[in-house]
Nucleic acid binder design. Structure first.
Lengths: 205, 205
DNA sequence: GACGCATCTATACTTTAGTATAGGTGACTA
DNA sequence: TAGTCACCTATACTAAAGTATAGATGCGTC
């Protein structure tokens, strides 16, 4: 029987998904409320086949949590689950070694399929996700942004300074200023705070 | 058998909660992905006992969706469900006539209790919710702010400059800077963007 | 009355943000 | 091949943000 560890900070979401998986399929589902608890639990067990991590959860810190989990348990398959993330996040996650990406917009039946898929050693990422809002709205204002500008905007959404962004993206501060200025113009806002608020409002990051 | 209509835009969350409720208790659970679909569905049926609305869902627009639902179906009980809302939102919801408030941090067992409670004609709101992050931080950080600092923060959340804030509050720009500096310290953040993002995350404005 | 506190203002300063202009590279394309 | 575009860097500047210190007012409390 496959052992699955589901980590999500919303008790209701976590428990019901766990209960669902255990009833409809022959899974043994353990749960945790944050990343640290999940990793701690795994250290005591060492027999988890699949770890499912909520993208927005204490301890995750973006994709850093994914990296930590993979480093601590290289043999275990890791899937990321999110209710808000867009295709970029999904791609980044897969790029950083995730075995699957599960948007919460998935149907329950598809979730089971996805899990089976990953357990069998395949990578899973739905290609039709984000049809509703995520992608549509992203199309409007944000489609004008270049790759670098998007990355810059992402950093703005954590409230970082130009200097910090420059360090993170490994470019000069002047360049960051250029990207910021250009994205402000493209988004039609007058400062970084408005840009961050706009992106947050559209659920981009 | 009580008929419940569960409206949430996350298929996964919605379907698993629905499945859970149907297996553990004698509920008949219908589902919808947004407010309009939910109301449309009810128009054709007119026998729903309890409508559960996700607070963050297309068509909700804050508590306006709650008002719309109650206006359209005065006889039906309505509960609000949210993964992020704080006590203030919960109180407002109850104030505007909601029959229950269900944080997603609730356990699955408590959810069933809550539903039974509401179906029996009682109002349900957990008094211990937000023990984890929501309330602790919301009460903690923002209660330290003075009236003026809160007003300043509100303006920050629209992305205004110090000069604009000064004009709106009818004080000098230096004073605004003082308020900003103080509230940054109190909130433990390092610039206005982070302050705005924090306040937005806590749904203060 | 003395004290604390929120409020406002002032001066003076450093740092960060944002604008402007110019130039270099590589990739892709008409 | 010439042109376009994303990208990066540089210099130089203005404007805005943030820090520090000091002093004034009013309000409520001990």
């Amino acid at each position: 029987m496959p052992n699955i560890l589901l980590a999500d900070d919303h008790d209701l979401v976590r428990d019901t998904i766990a209960a669902y998986l255990e009833t409809v399929e022959d899974f043994n589902v353990l749960t945790a409320a944050n990343l640290n608890d999940a990793l701690e639990l795994m250290r005591g067990l060492d027999l988890i086949d699949l770890l499912i991590l909520d993208y927005n959860m204490p301890g995750m810190n973006g994709l850093e949590g994914l990296t930590r989990a993979r480093a601590a348990f290289p043999a275990c398959k890791v899937a990321l689950m999110s209710g808000v993330a867009n295709r970029d996040v999904a791609n980044s996650a897969m790029g950083q070694g995730a075995d699957g990406f599960i948007p919460k917009s998935l149907t329950a039946a598809s979730l089971v399929n996805a899990i089976k898929f990953v357990l069998s050693g395949e990578k899973y990422m739905p290609f039709d996700f984000g049809t509703a809002r995520t992608e549509a709205k992203a199309g409007g204002e944000f489609s004008k942004l270049s790759a670098r500008e998007l990355q810059t905007l992402e950093q703005l959404c954590i409230g970082l300074s130009n200097k910090e962004i420059a360090r993170n993206l490994d470019i000069q501060e002047v360049t960051v200023k250029l990207h910021v200025k250009n994205l402000l113009t493209k988004l039609g806002v007058s400062n970084r705070t408005q840009a961050a608020l706009l992106a947050k409002e559209r659920h981009l990051f």
